[in-house]
Nucleic acid binder design. Structure first.
Length: 522
RNA sequence: GUACCUAUAGCUCAGUUGGAUAGAGCAUUGGUUUGCGGAACCAAAGGUCGGAGGUUCGAGUCCUCUUGGGUACACCA
């Protein structure tokens, strides 16, 4: 059947719907239809009734989804490089929740590897320092950060000289745990300042201690997915030099779509970082998650294929793991790159960023770009020229709305809710209904953004809503009869107030996904 | 060398599982205030969607090739 004929057929059926006013077939088979005013005023009623829950979807069907993000090593404060993944992961989680998924926000604490051992040694030096010993410069390879002085002082105060002069094998486990715990406390505090809260913190060490890693090895071995062998010399530019053929225990990841097989154990027999990570993903699966999402920095790109392969292998294809890579943020100050170096002390922490720019601005700004595209962030621009920042534009629309509400209450001496609930929405005019049409797109926006894992789309939508509202507002500057509140006409004012409330509701609903508070005043 | 990401207005970026005349902000030019908050609005100008083929009734979107940019490539995580 030709598209045009099909369109003709459909239009005749569409005519039967009472909300459809006119229909028309155009072009190759497009259907233009006009919905009645009643349909749109009904949409506005729905918005007002549902409040911030407007746009909630059942798309996810309550399916359990595990979103892992941040997962920074517990070896120091979060730095700005972590900010994008943290904000993105949190907003994505909120978005999926709104779309009807049962979301768990999860943080994986790498508290078992070599990095934590370095942390413990560094903290031990600070401990000795706190007890008055001269430690000189922190050796290369350890963490020189000032923040470890507190850890050293904490242990010195608690345990006195109990650990002085003992061997590393004796103090290391204790210092590992104590230092990592304190680092996690600090990290959680920073995350809280960014309005980010996790449901689950998983410990690498706990999983390793449970024997899960050995179980994974056994399983893979039984499935015939492991062999002992020598990997080919990598072709990368920087590799070559120190490479020598060594026998390792290797996982046949190429059977599951990876380009090369990956080592599970090093030539000395110890596990690579990869193996406990497999056990960890399997742990999530055993907790009932078949949909796993991992938010990582783009520098982990090389990790994706092997982990996908491993998850496929250990869950026999039952779980799905998606990787969302966040590209780097290019931080500048007045066009000059902000250099980050732990050594040189020009290290900018996530907390510094939040303190300096503000949580709401940071969150919104980072969410205006797709996570896998590079992002420029100029401190001076974002702070000073607020016009450059879309969050102000959206916030301003909400604040203006709030101001209209206040004026209405003052003018008519009644609560805004009371005015709105008794409003006759049929009084709304064409240009006002145009804004309602815009608002009514919100539920679809939520579903599309969630399906694509792209919260940034909502930022653009909110911007459009704000623009529509600002446009309407400015009509009142040129034509007084277009103002929202007219003392002489309470009925019309009430209908328009309902529209304003609808705009505010959609903005609130959207900002809630972004974890940004709507402004009542600015 | 290989894989992934990316290329859209002067700049920074959106663009609905392929749909009608590709959109916004900044910058540029011109305009809007006796009154609801001017952090706003209205308008003009600005495009061979990196290039070349292909699939399709229809391609910024999908495929192939190609060019530029980014990231990653055993024994670190």
């Amino acid at each position: 059947m030709k598209p045009r004929d099909l369109a003709e057929l459909l239009t005749s059926r569409l005519q039967e719907n009472p909300f459809v006013e006119t229909t028309q077939v155009a072009g190759a088979g497009f259907i233009n239809m006009r919905l009645s005013e009643k349909f749109w005023t009904h949409q506005l009623e729905t918005i007002l009734k549902e409040g911030v829950h407007y746009g909630d979807s059942t798309m996810g069907g309550g399916e359990k989804v595990n979103v892992e993000f941040t997962s920074a090593n517990p070896t120091g404060p979060l730095h700005v490089g972590h900010s994008r993944g943290a904000v993105f992961g949190d907003a994505l989680s909120s978005l999926l929740q709104k779309a009807g998924y049962d979301v768990t926000r999860e943080y994986y604490i790498n508290d078992a590897g070599a990095q934590v051992a370095k942390l413990a040694r560094s903290a031990y030096l600070r401990y000795l320092e706190a007890l008055g010993q001269k430690i000189g410069e922190i050796p290369a390879g350890l963490y020189p950060g000032e923040y470890l002085k507190e850890v050293g002082a904490f242990i010195a105060q608690k345990d006195g000289d109990k650990w002085v002069g003992v061997g590393e094998e004796e103090y290391l486990p204790y210092f590992k745990k104590t230092a990592a715990d304190l680092m996690m406390e600090m990290i959680k505090k920073d995350l809280a300042q960014a309005n980010i809260h996790f449901d689950v913190f998983s410990s690498e060490k706990a999983i390793a201690d449970s024997g899960a890693v050995e179980k994974v090895m056994d399983f893979l071995d039984k499935e015939g997915l492991i062999y002992k062998g020598v990997l080919e010399k990598p072709k990368g530019a920087k590799a070559a030099d120190d490479w020598e053929p060594k026998e390792m225990t290797i996982f046949k990841s190429t059977l599951f779509g990876d380009e090369v097989d990956r080592p599970l154990c090093r030539s000395d027999g110890s596990y690579t970082y990869f193996t406990p990570d497999i056990a960890y993903q399997l742990d999530k699966y055993k907790r009932g998650f078949k949909k796993l999402i991992m938010v990582l920095g783009a520098d982990h790109a090389g990790y994706v294929a092997r982990m996908k392969a491993a998850v496929k292998a250990v869950t026999k294809g039952d779980a799905q793991i998606d990787f969302l890579l966040c590209q780097m943020i290019n931080f500048t100050e007045n066009g000059q790159p902000v250099k980050m170096s732990k050594r040189a002390g020009t290290f900018v922490t996530f907390k510094d960023l939040l303190d300096e720019v503000g949580t709401d601005v940071v969150r919104f700004y980072l969410l205006t770009r797709k996570q896998d595209s590079q992002l420029d962030f100029d401190f001076a621009k974002v702070k000073e020229q607020s016009k450059d920042n879309p969050v102000f534009y959206v916030q301003y629309a909400h604040a203006r709305g709030a101001s209209v509400k206040r004026l209405a209450e003052e003018t008519f001496g009644k609560k805004a809710d009371e005015l709105i609930s008794s409003a006759d929405l049929s009084l709304l005019q064409e240009d006002e209904l145009a804004v309602v049409r815009q608002l009514a797109l919100w539920p679809r926006q939520v579903e599309m953004a969630a399906a694509a894992n792209e919260p940034h789309r909502l930022a653009y939508f909110l911007n459009d809503v704000a623009a529509a509202f600002h446009g309407l507002w400015n009509r009142g500057r040129e034509d007084v009869s277009k103002r929202f509140i007219e003392a002489k006409d309470e009925e019309l004012s009430k209908a328009r107030l309902a529209l304003v409330a609808g705009v505010m509701t959609v903005i609130e609903s959207g900002l809630a996904v972004f974890g940004v508070a709507p402004a009542e005043e600015m």
